[in-house]
Design a protein around this nucleic acid. Structure first.
Lengths: 195, 195
DNA sequence: AACTGTTTGTTGATAATCCAACACGGTGTT
DNA sequence: AACACCGTGTTGGATTATCAACAAACAGTT
């Protein structure tokens, strides 16, 4: 996201189109949402929509990409060097989810034509690979499996927590996930894996 | 208010400028509110403001006139022929105040450069003259004094009720005002008045 | 197949807003 | 008096959005 000044009108137009699509997604499946419906909700002319986006899927993808970028930038604010920092990073990720829960709940529930959950997993994968690299002594092939296991588990747990009303604190969730991950890396005998 | 279609952009611009001025009036006295401040709150360019309004007082006056017009149109929906209907009209006026209380509270609190309260009294005066005309058997000169007395008392009572949180029902307020008015018209000896 | 209703994608002219800039006036400070 | 800061009122050119209309595609019905 560039710091270059954006014309107020464009800023407003994109904001209301985004908000309108998110609102409509709370009420309808994506397949039932039309460009016409989005524009009515936003009170924006249809030709203006087409000046900004190709179609409703393009708008959705832009929303997803924007929040992924925002998520990455948010996490860049924090340093991560040691295993203790990895715990903090997981907590920060969960805090981000909590802060953006209104938007994330909608996006994580979308069925069809949405790659959002996959994108979130990619962010988490990068975070985890960056923070937890104790498995590096294993072959690269096994690392991929392990990180996939850890990432999938973590993201699904966070998603469940989010959609279930975030009753536990981000800190407790981070400790839970951290323990699950480390229990799997530390203390287990890797006797069946080859390099 | 014409049914002619208004360009969406103009509609939006006027709406956010109005909302912004009302918000700022909740936080500051009118004398401290600048065109620059309104435009910052509304996120609208200053030259656009000047394309629509002369200054902040012009905007305020437009807001006041709009709600007065809306009030009048609302009351036109109801028939008024007999004294019983006059009670109903007072109730309708109080219901209107209740429905628009967020805006009316702000406008009624404005000090300086605002004629809103006077305009409300004019609407009430027309309503009362239309509904209560039993005093017509007195000379016109005395009618003016009497209606001024009744209108001032009524509007201040309604204002107090509004700003105090509207604890009583519109119906009860209407009955109270109606009794106060009729007690003053019926049963009193007008021995000191000349025609 | 024909029909109807709805949505899509596009177009060109017009309207509205934005932006940066300018000169001026008011206020407070030195 | 001079200066600095802030807000005002205005300007012109550029950008963006609106509007109404059109042809085409799609979905459902007969």
């Amino acid at each position: 996201m560039t710091t270059e000044k954006l014309d107020r009108r464009k800023k407003y137009t994109r904001m209301v189109l985004k908000e309108s699509l998110l609102e409509l997604l709370q009420e309808n499946p994506l397949s039932a949402i039309t460009v016409k419906g989005i524009c009515e909700r936003a009170d924006i002319n249809r030709s203006t929509f087409y000046a900004h986006y190709r179609d409703q899927f393009d708008l959705l993808e832009t929303i997803e990409n924007d929040i992924i970028t925002d998520m990455k930038e948010y996490l860049l604010n924090f340093n991560v060097q040691k295993k203790e920092d990895a715990l903090r990073m997981t907590e920060k990720l969960i805090e981000y989810f909590q802060a953006k829960h209104e938007e994330l709940e909608v996006l994580l529930k979308v069925r069809g034509e949405s790659q959002f959950e996959r994108k979130v997993m990619e962010v988490a994968r990068h975070l985890i690979i960056h923070g937890w690299n104790e498995a590096e002594h294993l072959g690269e092939n096994w690392s991929t499996y392990i990180s996939t296991f850890i990432v999938s588990g973590s993201v699904q747990v966070i998603k469940m927590w989010l959609l279930d009303g975030m009753k536990e604190s981000p800190r407790d969730m981070a400790i839970l996930i951290n323990n699950l991950i480390n229990q799997g890396i530390y203390g287990n005998r890797w006797e069946h894996l080859s390099s």
